[in-house]
């Protein structure tokens, strides 16, 4: 059990923890707009943490002489590419959904209405 595998395990389980929190969040929050907050966290943080863990684990024994480890480095770069794509695409998707909800006319939940 090297120190790298400990880091990988902690990152991966933290990512899964945030995924579960995000899923609980979209079930528990009271209205559509606050559910988007939970979903956005799920996409942004949990995906990045878990993918980083896998990319780190993939280059665990990197050796400059071996072709195989260069191929592993390429696979890790591809995983980083997924992270970058998610970070560009997920806010755009959230923005599109929010705007659609405003145009369709879904009412936001507000504290004042509840207290009245």
């Amino acid at each position: 059990m090297s120190i790298l595998s400990v880091i990988v395990a902690v990152l991966l389980l933290l990512g899964v923890f945030f995924f579960i929190i995000g899923a609980v969040g979209i079930v528990r929050f009271p209205d559509f707009y606050s559910r988007l907050h939970a979903a956005g966290k799920c996409d942004a943080l949990a995906t990045a943490l878990s993918l980083m863990a896998i990319a780190l684990f993939n280059i665990r024994d990197f050796d400059w002489a071996l072709f195989q480890s260069w191929d592993n480095l390429r696979v890790s770069l591809k995983i980083v590419l997924i992270i970058l794509f998610v970070y560009v695409a997920s806010p755009a998707a959230t923005h599109a959904i929010t705007k659609a909800a405003f145009i369709v006319g879904i009412e936001p939940w507000e504290k004042r209405k509840r207290n009245r």
Partner: peptide, 22 residues
């Protein structure tokens, strides 16, 4: 609403991406 379902499917899709790599 339908948009709620889209948000849910989005989250499931993000989880599936990780699950596929695992």
């Amino acid at each position: 609403t339908v948009l709620d379902r889209i948000v849910g499917v989005n989250v499931v899709g993000a989880q599936t991406t990780i699950l596929l790599i695992l």
